[in-house]
Design a binder for these strands. Sequence first.
DNA 1: ACAATTCTTTGACTTGCATCAAAGATTTCT
DNA 2: AGAAATCTTTGATGCAAGTCAAAGAATTGT
Lengths: 254, 254
Amino acid sequence: MLKPDVIHLHNMNTTVIPDALKVACSNCNLRELCMPVGFNQDDMNKLDEVVATRRRVKQGSLLFSNGDPFSSLYAIRTGFFKTSVSAEDGREQVTGFQMAGEIIGLDGIVSEHHSCNAVALEDSDVCVMPFAKVEDLSREFPVLQRHVHKIMSREIVRENSVMMLLGNMRAEERLAAFLLNLVQRLHARGFSQSELVLRMTREEIGSYLGMKLETVSRTFSKFSEEGIIEVKQRYVRIITPDALKKIFNPQTCS
Amino acid sequence: MLKPDVIHLHNMNTTVIPDALKVACSNCNLRELCMPVGFNQDDMNKLDEVVATRRRVKQGSLLFSNGDPFSSLYAIRTGFFKTSVSAEDGREQVTGFQMAGEIIGLDGIVSEHHSCNAVALEDSDVCVMPFAKVEDLSREFPVLQRHVHKIMSREIVRENSVMMLLGNMRAEERLAAFLLNLVQRLHARGFSQSELVLRMTREEIGSYLGMKLETVSRTFSKFSEEGIIEVKQRYVRIITPDALKKIFNPQTCS
DNA sequence: ACAATTCTTTGACTTGCATCAAAGATTTCT
DNA sequence: AGAAATCTTTGATGCAAGTCAAAGAATTGT
């Protein structure tokens, strides 16, 4: 199966990466996604301190989970994660899917313990950023401080729009919004605007979108029958993006 | 009608309050809710600078709305707000209800413009905290910095649990969770653990919880018939809190 | 390479909540 | 105080998505 945007690292479950492999933010090709822009080289070198170590997380294993003491934020270097919360009775709600350049762990700040679970959906590699260090450097560099605030605000705004999806939209609208969002984020990372390989199961998509896996599958099939997308298991090609946009938001499209 | 926890201020729609009325954080009885704890008096006096002005917002009017340029966070001194996002086709999703001591406006940081609407559900009074000043003081006072981070993280965690409600719970569970959450927050402000007066309509509750106003009304009636609560329009008394908790979470209760 | 497991699709049937409708209560306006 | 507007309740009916079931496809482990 076609997996154009995957790097597979076959290692132990979750390991600290030796210094030799440590890559400084200043040289990182994801810098534009993770780090504030408009820095001179001196500042950039100091900011390299923010990343203490790197850590590999094997597919299916946890980066952190509910109840774990909070110490660090994580910037995803490669790979793909889901975050979820669980009710006492075991029901699980996927709260997000995160890809390279995105930051996870913000949930842990308030109580010093994580309140959600972060699972790698493929072998992944994260930059560990001890939060105390982030705060120290934020006090020194206003542009970093602003950046951290924006990351948190962006997450709040994202969750607002998920609430809109869950509270007001129908199954087709939810799935259309989901696909458009995923492909847009992948495109920002240099991948195709029209093709993607889903890293998550139908059940995980359903959990995120508040619907059952059967409904996800049926909705994919419906889009496919209508010629809007081509679906072959995890591979999806968007044939008519405008049709998807129209489903998501009938107003702004012809 | 009984309105134990309301202060009505009859003024113009939304006005800046003259300096004479300006109340310093250092003397504010909500300090424990808004401000970090463990401050000496000197620090506290400097922190008073964070609040530039106060502003009254009349019932039904907007504190800010989608698209407004972002400049400040707002700490609610008195009153009650709802925040909402709207889709292009006009559908509205209530994203939260906020009461005294809570902070609104965090959505505006990321794009320098607000992405939601904040409407006063009763005549309200907010402390205007210019965000640039919050950031300046945060760099000077690590404890304030940490406090701001916790407020943002708390909002992320709250939204995670709303996603759980919307994605996984049934109507009765949603309404039970909603009532328990409201009464708990009111209790933390010195009000009754068992009685409350709703500040929002059935439709607004429904929007927040992803259900129609008729379903909200029917669910209230059902709880009432079962002797769990007493409802008379906006007045609600919780008769058997354990029954509500059991509906919300069958596991942790007997 | 084969067996076991996990994931996906599709069909048949059920149900929780939405929709439509109308009356009654409360609040707001003049 | 009376009229108008808004909000709430309740009943009757419909439907989108859930549930149950089973077969087929893909992946994983040995």
